[in-house]
């Protein structure tokens, strides 16, 4: 059967990548062992390397990106599916698709040369007035608050905003597609019962499109976790866990691979593969959770 062959081929490609990652990573993993998950330093030259700090940075960038991206894409998807009409809708759909194709290197340059300078005052403001929340504090090792602009550059916050904007189109497309499939009968029924537009969206469109929301968010999260070039251009990589999101310095697995690939020895390359493998496994877990949620949601269920 053709479809079965296609499915097998897909799995074959996917497993080949996973297998290849594991084999190439085994050299490094056999040296570091479990310390790979707890060590913060990344120095394959001295055989002390681990992914703790890099992973923390990756996750913090991705979470900030989600905080920026999900509300934006949810709002835009609903705008396109339920508020805008006619020609405007077609135009917006095309624009979203176009935005998905803006090369990441352009986003990186834009983030580096335009956004960073303009976002620093905001970051300073947040850290000044919300510094009592540990996440927003920006302090040096001694604990004194920093106010210098250079303490706020190249942070997870800035990288997260740029990555968030990059993943919005992907998320919007998936969500919009799900929302537009919400049954007309139920929409009309809600409106006929006197619901306002938002009431209809809340009770019909969003529950129906929940699968799309989660699916889109996960797709975006996947891209945010794996985004390379834009993060690569913005962050200042550090190898300690930085819990202060507004403070300069963070890290990301894929940016690390891109940064270190060119000058890595065979062993260093193996260590980078191991980092890629860990990221791969984490996204596998996240996505598995998401797909089980989607499977249980009402999305696509029979309605009329």
């Amino acid at each position: 059967m053709v479809t079965f062959t296609a499915g097998t081929t897909t799995v074959g490609i996917m497993l080949a990548v996973g297998l290849f990652l594991s084999i190439r990573a085994s050299d490094a993993l056999s040296v570091s062992g479990f310390a790979f998950l707890t060590e913060q330093q990344w120095s394959p030259e001295t055989q002390t390397f681990g992914i703790a700090a890099i992973l923390a940075g990756t996750v913090s960038i991705a979470l900030i990106a989600m905080c920026v991206g999900v509300p934006l894409s949810l709002g835009t998807a609903l705008l396109i599916s339920d508020v805008a009409g006619g020609r405007l809708r077609g135009l917006l759909v095309t624009l979203v698709d176009l935005m998905a194709a803006v090369p990441s290197v352009v986003f990186g340059l834009w983030g580096l040369f335009f956004l960073q300078g303009n976002v620093i005052p905001v970051a300073q403001w947040i850290s000044t007035y919300f510094g009592w929340i540990p996440l927003f504090r920006v302090a040096d090792d001694a604990g004194t608050a920093l106010t210098d602009a250079s303490a706020f550059t190249s942070s997870a916050f800035i990288a997260g905003i740029v990555v968030g904007l990059m993943v919005v189109p992907t998320q919007t497309s998936v969500m919009r597609e799900a929302f537009s499939q919400a049954p007309v009968g139920e929409r009309e029924a809600a409106l006929a019962l006197g619901s306002s537009r938002w009431g209809m969206i809340r009770t019909v469109v969003i529950p129906f499109g929940r699968g799309g929301i989660i699916g889109g968010t996960m797709l975006g999260l996947g891209r945010a976790l794996g985004e390379t070039i834009a993060v690569y251009m913005i962050i200042s990589p550090i190898f300690t866990i930085n819990g202060e999101l507004l403070k300069t310095g963070t890290n990301s697995v894929s940016a690390l691979i891109a940064l270190r690939y060119g000058e890595a020895s065979e062993f260093g390359l193996s260590a980078l593969m191991a980092a890629g493998l860990v990221l791969f496994i984490i996204t596998l877990v996240v996505n598995f959770t998401a797909s089980s949620i989607v499977a249980r949601s009402r999305s696509g269920a029979e309605t009329d």
Binding site: G117, I120, S154, M233, S236, P237
Partner: peptide
């Protein structure tokens, strides 16, 4: 070493464009 170790108050930026760009900005 081809990879400068990060330390103290140093910032790391990628590429000549990145480091020169950082220094050239107002916040640099």
């Amino acid at each position: 070493t081809s990879q400068y170790p990060t330390f103290g108050g140093a910032k790391a930026q990628n590429g000549s464009l990145g480091v020169a760009g950082y220094v050239g900005q107002d916040y640099g």
